[in-house]
């Protein structure tokens, strides 16, 4: 169908306004991170001094280190458990408890974060009382909680990739004498590798970004980056947060681009 000139202009306007709405806030953070003034909304000249202050702020660096460690652990755990769950859901046909199983896998996708956070905290408190572990709360309980919600996302990504593979490939490997685990490693794993990487990256960035669930399951001393940002945002806008936000946006965009390309490749 031919698209008229008027329709093209109208369409362009709709998209332009929509994308402006989505990106203007992020751009304002980036622009003002290079502002010299401490007053965030008065432009007084270009400066990178807030980045310098950031690099010397021990609280930020410690929080960053903690967050990166937890995110790497959570992403790895989520991909391992997510691969097993995805393989079972995609390849095992009907198995006992499948409806419950897939419900539990998907639950963190649909539960409100406050519910997930509160209920996991209550579990940790009760476990400590009954079996003495985990002692108190901190990095370990945050990592467990992050693995748990990331499994939901990882399973969705990996499952759709496994489901698109031809089961005949594994059967051929079996016919040629490969044991099931060897067939999985030699045939399935290389084919789903891009999906595994995409799932890892998504889990990593979700963990790095989580505030609500972390706030419930953290303990004294374990301040992740979002917890630190939240407490300083409550005190008002400040240029150091703009600089930190710009760095986070930069890293997140690269991670998102990589993951999208990986998923497109895995089709």
């Amino acid at each position: 169908m031919r698209v008229s000139r008027g329709a093209k202009i109208a369409g362009g306007t709709v998209l332009g306004l929509g994308y402006a709405f989505l990106f203007a806030p992020i751009l304002s953070v980036i622009v003002y991170s290079f502002n010299e003034s401490r007053l965030v909304t008065v432009w007084s000249g270009f400066s990178t001094k807030w980045y310098g202050e950031l690099a010397h702020d021990d609280r930020v660096l410690n929080a960053l280190r903690l967050s990166l460690g937890i995110a790497a652990f959570a992403a790895s755990g989520a991909v391992i458990i997510g691969t097993m769950a995805a393989y079972a859901l995609a390849r095992f046909g009907k198995f006992r408890g499948k409806a419950l199983f897939s419900g539990l896998v998907a639950a963190p996708l649909v539960l409100p974060e406050v519910t997930t956070g509160l209920s996991m905290l209550l579990l940790f408190v009760l476990m400590e009382r009954l079996i003495g572990w985990p002692q108190g709360r901190g990095a370990i309980t945050i990592a467990i909680a992050h693995v748990t919600f990331a499994v939901a996302y990882a399973t969705v990504i990996i499952r759709s990739r496994i489901a698109s593979l031809d089961p005949a490939l594994e059967e051929a490997a079996a016919d040629l004498g490969a044991r099931p685990f060897a067939a999985f490693v030699a045939v399935v794993l290389p084919l789903i590798a891009p999906a595994l990487a995409a799932a890892w990256l998504l889990s990593f960035s979700l963990s790095l970004d989580d505030f609500v669930i972390t706030a419930f399951v953290t303990g004294p001393g374990a301040t992740t980056l979002p917890l630190l940002i939240f407490s300083s945002v409550k005190l008002g806008v400040n240029p150091e947060i703009n600089a930190l936000g710009t760095l986070i946006v930069g890293v997140a965009s690269m991670v998102a681009l990589t993951a999208t390309l990986l998923q497109r490749k895995s089709g």
Binding site: I26, T41, L208, D209, F211, I241, N242, A252, S253, A256
Partner: peptide
């Protein structure tokens, strides 16, 4: 991709950005 991108970016930073835009002496 342009619609997905903000979704990957820190939700905390994106909400924070609106404080700078909407406050009384904001953008």
């Amino acid at each position: 991709m342009l619609v997905i991108l903000p979704f990957w970016t820190s939700s905390l930073i994106r909400v924070y950005a609106w404080i700078g835009i909407l406050k009384e002496n904001g953008l």
